[in-house]
Simulated assay, not measured.
Amino acid sequence: MEDFFRSYWWLLFPIGAFVFGAWDRWLAYKRSRDHLDLLKHYAAQGKEPPPELVRGVGDDMSGEAPGAYPPGGPYGPYGYGGYWGGPRHMRRMYRNYYRWGPYWQWRSVFVTGAVAAGFWFASEWSDWPGTYGPFRLVAIILTIVACGNLVFALLGSNFRNK
Rank of each mutant, 00 (worst) to 15 (best):
Y75A: 13
G82R: 01
E2R: 15
G73L: 00
G72V: 00
K30V: 02
W104C: 05
W26E: 12
W120T: 08
L53S: 09
Y103D: 09
G67I: 09
G73P: 01
A116K: 14
P129G: 15
V145Y: 15
S126P: 07
W128G: 14
S108W: 08
G101H: 09
M93W: 15
P87N: 15
G73A: 02
G81Q: 00
M1Q: 05
P77T: 02
R92N: 10
Y97K: 06
M93N: 08
P77D: 02
L11N: 05
A68K: 13
F135G: 13
D60G: 10
Y29M: 09
P134T: 01
P14E: 10
W106T: 01
Y103H: 08
G58K: 04
A117F: 12
E64I: 13
R25Y: 07
P74Q: 04
A44H: 13
F110G: 03
M90G: 00
G156I: 06
W125M: 05
D24Q: 11
T112C: 11
Y132G: 14
F121H: 12
P87W: 00
Y80V: 01
L39D: 06
G133A: 15
V57K: 02
L154D: 00
G156F: 08
I140D: 11
F121W: 14
W84G: 00
V54S: 10
W23L: 13
T112R: 11
A122C: 07
G56M: 05
L36V: 12
